[in-house]
Design a protein around this nucleic acid. Structure first.
Lengths: 136, 136
DNA sequence: TATCAATGATTGATGAGTCAAATATGAAAG
DNA sequence: CTTTCATATTTGACTCATCAATCATTGATA
């Protein structure tokens, strides 16, 4: 593949990301990144910021800043690990846990933005291709 | 598809975008967005900023700012359209045209970051899926 | 022809990410 | 013990996007 085609393909990824992220935010009220972050905390129960960082693969600075805002909004609680004061433990607040559940329940699977343009199997295809890309 | 899976998929797109864009920049010396912008100007010969905007589908403000920098770096020239002073005409400089050609020629197709993880047909598959996503 | 709406570009404020440097704590070794 | 190194988080400076507001120009119209 020529460089020109390559750049078109990569630029398509960028556009898709932008569109899809803003649609997600409009539909759920959470930014994609923060939703993902909250779900990770939810799955783990309690975890340190670097655990979140490892799962999300974004910069630590970004993690700190998101959590600061999520804390201000009352979505998470943070406290230093008494056994290791370097670490900060993060957990969901109950209101956030409830809110996320509602989000999940209200989510109309067939009517979701993406479901309108991609079938289930296409989504799986896409996921597999992206997974390969994410090994770069 | 459940909301949780959906958010994972969308987050994969975000990560892929980030990785791929930084790799592209490392390899070519141009940011993906600016490379795309320069190639569009190259294809069109001379064009107004709003033409670029329509092709790239990013905010006009971003266009203005990129072009300002590309002009400072000597990659493009800009001048008002005398027939319509609202418009700014953009064209590549000769040095930039040469530089882009070199870029294209030096591009090692088999060894490119993405070629290492995706076959040609997978790239086409990906492109088709993204095209659908970009109709949202 | 004076006004008003539409068009094209720009600017300012904000959000989300990066990297690099700073801080704070803990662990290990002389 | 105290120095030194590693780990975890935070902060600062920067880039690239967005939206909303502004400015300049053009064209239509009353």
């Amino acid at each position: 593949m020529e460089l020109r085609e390559m750049s078109r393909l990569l630029y398509q990824i960028k556009l898709a990301d932008q569109r899809v992220a803003t649609s997600f935010e409009r539909e759920t009220g959470f930014s994609l990144t923060r939703y993902e972050m909250l779900m990770i905390v939810n799955d783990k129960g309690v975890c340190s910021q670097s655990e979140i960082q490892q799962e999300m693969k974004i910069d630590n600075a970004a993690i700190t800043r998101h959590l600061k805002i999520l804390e201000e909004k009352g979505h998470v609680q943070r406290e230093r690990n008494v056994a290791n004061n370097r670490e900060v433990f993060v957990r969901l607040t109950e209101t956030a846990a409830r809110e996320l559940q509602h989000c999940e329940q209200n989510h109309d699977q067939t009517n979701h933005l993406i479901a309108k343009v991609l079938s289930e199997s296409e989504m799986q295809q896409l996921s597999a291709l992206l997974q390969k890309l994410n090994t770069i």
